[in-house]
C-alpha cells in the first residue's frame, strides 16, 4: 500500500497551558513554530544547531533546545516558554542580580535555570555548571547569572520548600 505524502500536518500543541492548533511542515522545528506561527518570540534562534541554548523551552518541565526538536515531536507534551513564566523567583532573581545585558540569551537562560531549581533544588556547584554550560551569554561574565541561580536555590532551601 502506498503511504500518501503529507506536506503539512495539523497538530495540537499544549503551550503555556493553552491548547493551540497549528498547521506545520513536519520538518519545522519547534523553535520556528513557536516564533513564526504562535508569535512566541521569547525563544530566540542563536545557532539553530543545538549549541547555544538561546532557544531553550521546557518540555514536561525539562529544558529542551527548541531548535533541535521538531514541532510534531512536542504533541502530547507540555511546552512552557518564557511567555508562560510570570513573576517566578528566577525571573525576579535575574532582575535583582542584573543577570543580563542585551537580553537575547536571557529567556533561554531563565528557562534552563527555572527547570534546574525545580528539578535539582539541592544542586551544588557542579550540577549548576553542568546545566548552565548548555547556554552561552556573550555580554555578562556569568557572575550575575551564578548569583541569580544561587539566590533562588538558597531562598528555596531556607523557605523549607524542599526537605533536602
Amino acid at each position: 500500500m502506498t503511504i500518501p505524502r503529507i506536506p503539512k500536518v495539523s497538530i495540537d500543541l499544549l503551550v503555556n497551558n493553552e491548547m493551540r492548533n497549528v498547521v506545520v511542515r513536519p520538518s519545522d522545528t519547534l523553535l520556528r513554530v513557536l516564533r513564526e506561527v504562535l508569535g512566541l518570540t521569547g525563544a530566540k534562534p542563536g545557532c539553530e544547531n543545538g549549541d547555544c541554548g538561546s532557544c531553550t523551552v521546557l518540555i514536561d518541565g525539562w529544558p529542551m533546545k527548541s531548535c533541535i526538536m521538531l514541532a510534531v515531536e512536542a504533541v502530547n507534551q507540555q511546552i512552557t516558554t518564557i511567555e508562560g513564566l510570570k513573576d517566578t523567583p528566577i525571573q525576579n532573581a535575574f532582575l535583582e542580580q542584573w543577570a543580563f545585558q542585551c537580553g537575547y540569551c536571557t529567556p533561554g537562560f531563565i528557562m534552563n535555570c527555572h527547570a534546574l531549581v525545580n528539578i535539582h533544588p539541592d544542586a551544588n556547584d557542579k550540577v549548576i555548571q553542568e546545566w548552565l554550560e548548555s547556554n552561552i551569554c556573550r555580554c555578562t561574565g556569568y557572575e550575575e547569572i551564578e548569583a541569580a541561580v544561587k539566590s533562588v536555590l538558597s531562598k528555596q532551601r531556607s523557605d523549607g520548600r524542599y526537605s533536602h
Binding site: 511567555e83 537580553g103 537575547y104 536571557t106
Partner: peptide, 17 residues
C-alpha cells in the same frame, strides 16, 4: 528595559513578524 527582558516580550529585529 529590565522587565521586558526577563519576560520574553523584548523585541529584536528578527522578532517582528
Amino acid at each position: 528595559e529590565a522587565s521586558e527582558k526577563v519576560t520574553g516580550i523584548a523585541k529584536y529585529t528578527n522578532d517582528i513578524n
